[in-house]
């Protein structure tokens, strides 16, 4: 059986709009964010995301896990990019060295070296802000959409009945998968299995994950077959379907969609004029020159 995300009705900016309008705005927001690398532009978008987060009415304790997971992931990879200097090369051709640090030892003849350049630093910061803005807006969605509306949202966005219901099921698949994983982990722990004590090489470790991976995977397959049977047993797909829930656009929803579209068109226009590209502030370049 599918479970849902932890939605509850809240007095919040995000929930004051029709969910379809919000999804359209969200899509525009994502498109805008990926168009820019200029930190100044990105900070405007980041500020918008923060307004939505802080007016969402969702307590941090409710979202803690999602934030720790995604936040940890984003920070880790931004830092890794900074250390290795990988990525960003397509954005800049020239680098201005700020400082260079060499380890006092060598590893098999290789001396670990960290070069801090103005471009690398800005790339890491821009990347962090960009991904964080996207993540912030995305995390809120499952907490803010009424699960009873999943199907009708997609139907209302123009998808056919079957695809819309499929999307409804897909939205609920992720938390269900999480629940199954926890149940399996508990059942195996009760058999003396300790995930924390995995040892051996990579292959051996993956093999030792079988007690978790196999039941969860099989369960997912079996449940999807059950879902298909259950749908068939209740006449799914015999003809055009009525959607019990109804959604109606109000003026504020139309305004939100309008705002999203204008924002996107403006962003496209700006980027066509070559604006919003990777930007390195003057003071960093001066710092590099001084160094």
């Amino acid at each position: 059986m599918l479970v849902t995300w932890r939605y509850k009705p809240r007095k919040s900016l995000i929930q004051s709009f029709d969910p379809r309008a919000w999804i359209i705005f969200f899509a525009c927001y994502i498109a805008c964010t990926v168009l820019f690398w200029d930190l100044r532009y990105l900070l405007v978008l980041f500020a918008m995301a923060m307004v939505v987060v802080f007016t969402s009415g969702i307590r941090f304790s409710e979202m803690r896990r999602a934030w720790l997971f995604i936040g940890g992931f984003v920070v880790f990879f931004s830092f890794l990019t900074f250390l290795t200097g990988r990525g960003g090369i397509e954005l800049y051709t020239e680098e201005h060295l700020i400082t260079r640090w060499e380890a006092g030892f060598t590893l098999l003849g290789w001396r670990p070296t960290l070069t801090v350049t103005a471009e690398k630093t800005m790339y890491a910061v821009s990347m962090l802000v960009r991904v964080f803005s996207l993540a912030s807006m995305t995390i809120l969605i499952p907490y803010s959409l009424n699960p009873a509306h999943y199907g009708i949202i997609f139907k209302g966005l123009g998808l056919p009945d079957k695809v819309a219901y499929g999307m409804d099921l897909t939205m609920r698949f992720i938390p269900s998968f999480g629940r199954d994983f926890m149940l399996t982990r508990d059942a195996q722990r009760a058999r003396g299995y300790e995930l924390e004590k995995l040892s051996g090489g990579l292959v051996a470790q993956v093999r030792k994950l079988a007690p978790l991976i196999v039941p969860v995977t099989i369960h997912a397959i079996v449940s999807s077959e059950d879902i298909i049977d259950a749908m068939d047993l209740r006449a799914f797909g015999v003809g055009p379907r009525t959607w019990l829930e109804e959604l109606h656009y109000r003026t504020r929803d139309r305004l939100l969609i309008g705002f999203g579209v204008v924002m996107l068109l403006t962003s496209i226009a700006l980027s066509l004029f070559g604006m919003g590209k990777f930007w390195v502030p003057q003071f960093l370049l001066q710092l590099a020159a001084a160094g």
């Binding site: 059942a187 009760a190 007690p211 039941p215 099989i218 369960h219």
Partner: peptide, 9 residues
């Protein structure tokens, strides 16, 4: 456990 399908692998 109640459900066997969560543990058999």
């Amino acid at each position: 456990f109640q459900s066997p399908s969560h543990m058999l692998f």
